[in-house]
Amino acid sequence: MKNIKFIFAGVVFTLAASFLGILLSGRVQLGSLGRAPAEEGGLLFPPREPGLAIQGREVYLSLGCVACHTQQVRPASQGNDIAKGYGPRHSVARDYILQSSVLLGTHRIGPDLANYGARAASENEIHQHLLVPKAGSAMPSYAFLYTRGKDGTLVPTEKAIALVAYLKSLKIDYSSPEAKLNQ
Protein backbone atom coordinates (compact mmCIF):
# COMPACT_ATOMS: atom_id res chain seq x y z
CA MET A 1 0.00 0.00 0.00
CA LYS A 2 2.05 2.90 -1.28
CA ASN A 3 -0.67 5.07 -2.77
CA ILE A 4 -2.14 7.72 -0.49
CA LYS A 5 -5.33 7.86 -2.56
CA PHE A 6 -5.89 4.14 -2.01
CA ILE A 7 -5.37 4.43 1.75
CA PHE A 8 -7.60 7.49 2.03
CA ALA A 9 -10.31 5.89 -0.11
CA GLY A 10 -10.23 2.75 2.03
CA VAL A 11 -10.45 4.71 5.29
CA VAL A 12 -13.31 6.86 3.95
CA PHE A 13 -15.08 3.66 2.88
CA THR A 14 -14.79 2.16 6.37
CA LEU A 15 -16.19 5.33 7.94
CA ALA A 16 -18.95 5.63 5.35
CA ALA A 17 -19.93 1.99 5.87
CA SER A 18 -20.44 2.46 9.60
CA PHE A 19 -22.12 5.85 9.09
CA LEU A 20 -24.61 4.42 6.62
CA GLY A 21 -24.97 1.08 8.39
CA ILE A 22 -25.60 2.37 11.89
CA LEU A 23 -26.51 6.03 11.81
CA LEU A 24 -28.55 6.36 8.64
CA SER A 25 -30.29 3.01 9.17
CA GLY A 26 -31.09 4.08 12.71
CA ARG A 27 -32.42 7.37 11.33
CA VAL A 28 -34.67 5.52 8.89
CA GLN A 29 -36.13 3.46 11.72
CA LEU A 30 -36.40 6.11 14.43
CA GLY A 31 -36.42 9.44 12.61
CA SER A 32 -40.18 9.52 12.04
CA LEU A 33 -41.21 8.47 15.56
CA GLY A 34 -43.93 10.72 16.95
CA ARG A 35 -46.07 10.98 20.02
CA ALA A 36 -48.50 8.10 20.30
CA PRO A 37 -51.24 6.87 22.63
CA ALA A 38 -50.67 3.62 24.49
CA GLU A 39 -54.17 2.56 23.46
CA GLU A 40 -56.38 3.74 20.63
CA GLY A 41 -58.02 7.06 21.43
CA GLY A 42 -55.90 7.61 24.55
CA LEU A 43 -53.69 10.54 25.46
CA LEU A 44 -50.57 11.15 23.41
CA PHE A 45 -47.25 10.37 25.06
CA PRO A 46 -44.63 11.49 25.87
CA PRO A 47 -46.21 14.67 27.24
CA ARG A 48 -44.86 18.03 26.14
CA GLU A 49 -42.37 19.56 28.57
CA PRO A 50 -43.52 22.66 30.48
CA GLY A 51 -41.59 25.84 29.56
CA LEU A 52 -40.07 26.04 33.04
CA ALA A 53 -38.79 22.46 32.69
CA ILE A 54 -37.09 23.36 29.41
CA GLN A 55 -35.26 26.15 31.25
CA GLY A 56 -34.47 23.69 34.03
CA ARG A 57 -32.84 21.34 31.53
CA GLU A 58 -30.36 24.14 30.76
CA VAL A 59 -29.58 24.48 34.48
CA TYR A 60 -29.16 20.68 34.72
CA LEU A 61 -26.74 20.81 31.78
CA SER A 62 -24.92 23.85 33.10
CA LEU A 63 -24.24 22.29 36.52
CA GLY A 64 -22.94 19.11 34.91
CA CYS A 65 -25.50 16.84 36.61
CA VAL A 66 -25.19 14.43 33.66
CA ALA A 67 -21.73 13.43 34.94
CA CYS A 68 -23.36 11.53 37.83
CA HIS A 69 -26.89 10.71 36.69
CA THR A 70 -28.28 8.67 33.83
CA GLN A 71 -31.75 9.01 32.37
CA GLN A 72 -32.45 5.55 30.99
CA VAL A 73 -34.05 2.51 32.54
CA ARG A 74 -32.73 -0.73 31.10
CA PRO A 75 -34.96 -3.72 30.34
CA ALA A 76 -35.16 -6.37 33.05
CA SER A 77 -33.10 -8.69 30.83
CA GLN A 78 -30.27 -6.15 30.66
CA GLY A 79 -29.83 -5.03 34.26
CA ASN A 80 -31.66 -4.62 37.54
CA ASP A 81 -32.86 -1.03 37.01
CA ILE A 82 -36.55 -1.90 37.30
CA ALA A 83 -35.92 -4.05 40.38
CA LYS A 84 -34.07 -1.10 41.94
CA GLY A 85 -37.16 1.03 41.45
CA TYR A 86 -35.68 3.40 38.85
CA GLY A 87 -38.82 3.07 36.76
CA PRO A 88 -41.97 1.00 36.26
CA ARG A 89 -40.87 -0.03 32.76
CA HIS A 90 -37.80 0.25 30.57
CA SER A 91 -37.11 3.38 28.53
CA VAL A 92 -37.91 3.36 24.82
CA ALA A 93 -36.82 5.62 21.97
CA ARG A 94 -40.22 7.32 21.86
CA ASP A 95 -39.71 8.70 25.39
CA TYR A 96 -37.00 11.04 24.11
CA ILE A 97 -38.44 12.39 20.86
CA LEU A 98 -39.38 15.80 22.29
CA GLN A 99 -36.05 16.38 24.04
CA SER A 100 -33.81 18.88 22.30
CA SER A 101 -30.74 17.42 24.00
CA VAL A 102 -30.88 13.79 25.07
CA LEU A 103 -29.12 13.22 28.38
CA LEU A 104 -28.83 9.44 28.63
CA GLY A 105 -25.63 9.70 30.69
CA THR A 106 -22.87 7.14 31.08
CA HIS A 107 -22.14 6.85 34.81
CA ARG A 108 -24.26 6.37 37.90
CA ILE A 109 -22.55 8.02 40.82
CA GLY A 110 -26.09 8.96 41.78
CA PRO A 111 -29.36 7.21 40.91
CA ASP A 112 -31.03 7.15 37.51
CA LEU A 113 -33.40 10.08 37.01
CA ALA A 114 -35.56 8.89 34.08
CA ASN A 115 -38.55 8.55 36.41
CA TYR A 116 -37.38 10.78 39.27
CA GLY A 117 -40.34 13.12 38.89
CA ALA A 118 -42.69 10.27 39.73
CA ARG A 119 -40.56 9.04 42.65
CA ALA A 120 -40.23 12.45 44.32
CA ALA A 121 -43.26 13.17 46.45
CA SER A 122 -43.28 16.93 45.85
CA GLU A 123 -41.25 19.85 44.59
CA ASN A 124 -40.53 20.78 48.20
CA GLU A 125 -38.89 17.40 48.73
CA ILE A 126 -36.60 18.04 45.76
CA HIS A 127 -35.72 21.53 47.04
CA GLN A 128 -34.94 20.00 50.42
CA HIS A 129 -32.69 17.38 48.82
CA LEU A 130 -30.81 20.02 46.78
CA LEU A 131 -30.27 22.10 49.91
CA VAL A 132 -29.44 19.32 52.36
CA PRO A 133 -28.93 15.98 50.61
CA LYS A 134 -30.26 12.96 52.45
CA ALA A 135 -27.84 11.02 54.65
CA GLY A 136 -25.72 8.61 52.64
CA SER A 137 -26.23 10.52 49.41
CA ALA A 138 -23.16 11.05 47.22
CA MET A 139 -24.56 14.42 46.12
CA PRO A 140 -23.16 17.72 47.39
CA SER A 141 -25.41 20.49 48.62
CA TYR A 142 -26.55 22.95 45.97
CA ALA A 143 -27.16 25.68 48.52
CA PHE A 144 -25.73 28.27 46.11
CA LEU A 145 -28.98 27.94 44.18
CA TYR A 146 -30.80 29.55 47.14
CA THR A 147 -30.62 33.01 48.69
CA ARG A 148 -31.64 34.43 52.03
CA GLY A 149 -34.92 36.32 52.01
CA LYS A 150 -35.57 39.47 54.03
CA ASP A 151 -37.00 37.37 56.85
CA GLY A 152 -33.92 35.16 56.86
CA THR A 153 -35.55 32.17 55.22
CA LEU A 154 -33.97 30.45 52.24
CA VAL A 155 -35.55 31.37 48.93
CA PRO A 156 -34.95 29.40 45.74
CA THR A 157 -33.43 31.34 42.87
CA GLU A 158 -34.94 31.20 39.39
CA LYS A 159 -32.41 28.53 38.52
CA ALA A 160 -33.45 26.37 41.47
CA ILE A 161 -37.13 26.72 40.59
CA ALA A 162 -36.46 25.79 36.94
CA LEU A 163 -34.21 22.88 37.90
CA VAL A 164 -36.82 21.46 40.27
CA ALA A 165 -39.53 21.87 37.61
CA TYR A 166 -37.32 19.93 35.20
CA LEU A 167 -36.58 17.15 37.69
CA LYS A 168 -40.29 16.89 38.51
CA SER A 169 -41.06 16.58 34.79
CA LEU A 170 -38.87 13.48 34.40
CA LYS A 171 -41.39 10.65 34.24
CA ILE A 172 -41.95 7.43 32.38
CA ASP A 173 -45.04 6.48 34.36
CA TYR A 174 -47.14 6.07 31.23
CA SER A 175 -47.57 3.23 28.81
CA SER A 176 -45.96 3.43 25.42
CA PRO A 177 -46.83 1.29 22.38
CA GLU A 178 -43.38 -0.31 22.79
CA ALA A 179 -43.46 -0.78 26.58
CA LYS A 180 -46.63 -1.17 28.58
CA LEU A 181 -46.62 -0.37 32.28
CA ASN A 182 -48.02 -3.73 33.33
CA GLN A 183 -45.37 -5.74 31.48
Binding site: G10, T14, A17, I22, G26, Q72, H90, A93, Y96
Partner: peptide, 25 residues
Protein backbone atom coordinates in the same frame (compact mmCIF):
# COMPACT_ATOMS: atom_id res chain seq x y z
CA UNK B 1 -4.75 -2.48 9.47
CA UNK B 2 -7.92 -2.88 7.42
CA UNK B 3 -9.77 -5.01 9.96
CA UNK B 4 -8.88 -2.48 12.66
CA UNK B 5 -10.32 0.41 10.69
CA UNK B 6 -13.29 -1.55 9.36
CA UNK B 7 -14.53 -2.94 12.67
CA UNK B 8 -13.56 -0.12 15.06
CA UNK B 9 -16.02 2.40 13.68
CA UNK B 10 -18.92 -0.05 14.18
CA UNK B 11 -18.24 -0.56 17.89
CA UNK B 12 -20.09 2.55 19.12
CA UNK B 13 -23.41 0.83 19.87
CA UNK B 14 -21.58 -1.75 22.01
CA UNK B 15 -21.26 1.03 24.58
CA UNK B 16 -25.04 1.53 24.57
CA UNK B 17 -26.28 -1.94 25.52
CA UNK B 18 -29.62 -1.79 27.31
CA UNK B 19 -30.30 1.72 26.01
CA UNK B 20 -33.53 2.69 24.23
CA UNK B 21 -31.90 2.09 20.83
CA UNK B 22 -33.21 -0.72 18.62
CA UNK B 23 -31.80 -4.12 19.56
CA UNK B 24 -30.35 -4.74 16.12
CA UNK B 25 -28.20 -1.61 16.41
Amino acid sequence: FWTFFLFASWTGPATLLGSPLPLWV
